[in-house]
Design a binder for these strands. Sequence first.
DNA 1: AGGCGCTTGTGAACACCGGCACAAAGTCGC
DNA 2: GCGACTTTGTGCCGGTGTTCACAAGCGCCT
Lengths: 220, 220
Amino acid sequence: MSTAPAPRREIPDATVARLPVYLRVLRTLLADGVDVVSSEELAEAAGVRSAGLRRDLSYLGSYGVRGVGYDVARLADEIARELGLTQDRFVAIVGMGNLGHALAAYSGFATRGFEVRWLVDNDPAIVGTQIAERCVVALEELTRQDPDGLIVVIATPPAQAQDVADAVVAMGVRSILNFAPCVLTVPDGVEVRKVDLATELQILAFHEQRGRDDLREVNP
Amino acid sequence: MSTAPAPRREIPDATVARLPVYLRVLRTLLADGVDVVSSEELAEAAGVRSAGLRRDLSYLGSYGVRGVGYDVARLADEIARELGLTQDRFVAIVGMGNLGHALAAYSGFATRGFEVRWLVDNDPAIVGTQIAERCVVALEELTRQDPDGLIVVIATPPAQAQDVADAVVAMGVRSILNFAPCVLTVPDGVEVRKVDLATELQILAFHEQRGRDDLREVNP
DNA sequence: AGGCGCTTGTGAACACCGGCACAAAGTCGC
DNA sequence: GCGACTTTGTGCCGGTGTTCACAAGCGCCT
Ligand SMILES: NC(=O)c1ccc[n+]([C@@H]2O[C@H](COP(=O)([O-])OP(=O)(O)OC[C@H]3O[C@@H](n4cnc5c(N)ncnc54)[C@H](O)[C@@H]3O)[C@@H](O)[C@H]2O)c1
Ligand SMILES: NC(=O)c1ccc[n+]([C@@H]2O[C@H](COP(=O)([O-])OP(=O)(O)OC[C@H]3O[C@@H](n4cnc5c(N)ncnc54)[C@H](O)[C@@H]3O)[C@@H](O)[C@H]2O)c1
């Protein structure tokens, strides 16, 4: 039998989804001069339970000190490394409409380690113009670039989103963040995450209605 | 004394999160003149497995016809009812910066049954101006309104998000959609959902790195 | 040095969720 | 009217995620 020399730590998806939150809180603490934090305090600040937090962190290794807590700088580095933020990551925003403009002006990309390198649109009136001190290029221009480490953000109308996805997948992109309210079909090995505003609102509406029904149940 | 601390949930959260997708697909089908759809076709269009789709729909009741499929209009109505979209829902957008402008101009609210009724900012230079044919009001103005059926979208910088949340919770709002990258603390009974761009990108970065590691393992 | 108090890391139990496979239940053709 | 065909609704199971509870480990104080 093959000896499993590298105990490949498979980190659960649910944990991966929380690591960015921990990282953000840790960097805030670091900026405030805090150098050690307990799981209880960190969990409070991250809005999770301490037991869950400790289990999440245990997937990264044993970076805590019993009786003391976690070294803030060390833990932040470990999470950043695990998330793949040690190497440079680039972002291309496709679709320079209302949303694309807001995204292009958003400073949160740079502060989290993502460089917005390309702004893309296919409207001839927009291509070549400057947005947020950056030149807008055509989609054909983007597809000639190196896809390594590139994340494509789709902010086109839903009818064009699949075409854009097909084009960037063909160039080798394997990470897509989709703002268009539609289902994207991509080959295996390509990861799509979606941000759907209407879905979020409808989930909120559901819970609000359920809350009201619960009240009626007790107080008819 | 206090019994049943865990509220018996009729519909699982995972199902609720998918219902809006089904609803969107169903309305597209309806617009295309399709009046009956099988679980296989609907699942394909929604990007899920047919068995899972059928289980999701089974929580709403038995609205399908064996051997035939689901009546598109009927099913759309049932989902809309379950999501609480039969009663009017209103949205207030707080923070009229880059993102707030894009949201105010977004037509997707209205087409999904949400009326953007208030645009809010606390910058005196912005209050009173018109954005997307709507007048911007101060936060104090919003907090005097009826919170029933109101969903508050927070698009302020993170440092002000908690204050805004506190203010709208105090007026009785129980549903908040938070775009600011920070943890909001709210009382029980108030639901907060967050949209965090950097988190999404970092999750994508993690998977992209993991994919590359997997390749190295096979091809060093 | 050794005990004591604090916090981590984790075993175990439990709840949840997704997928398979199939019986039940309906339609359609004749 | 009836059998063949189609599709739904669900029992079941394995995998995932969450929580409790506590032993193990570390530093500090005496
Ligand atoms: N505006 C918002 O606040 C908001 C919020 C959530 C989701 N969305 C979604 O985001 C998407 C964009 O919204 P918007 O309001 O910015 O729309 P918009 O119409 O203002 O902008 C769309 C832009 O995409 C460009 N485009 C179209 N096809 C393209 C292609 N094939 N390649 C490159 N560029 C292309 C157009 O030229 C246009 O500039 C939509 O799908 C919308 O549903 C928007
Ligand atoms: N711009 C984007 O694409 C984007 C994307 C994701 C997340 N975000 C987040 O969304 C938030 C807004 O981003 P932005 O780029 O629009 O920022 P911005 O600075 O352009 O706008 C913030 C607005 O909020 C207003 N504001 C501040 N405090 C307020 C208060 N107490 N009550 C009411 N209004 C208040 C300000 O007057 C300003 O108009 C930020 O938290 C940002 O991190 C933005």
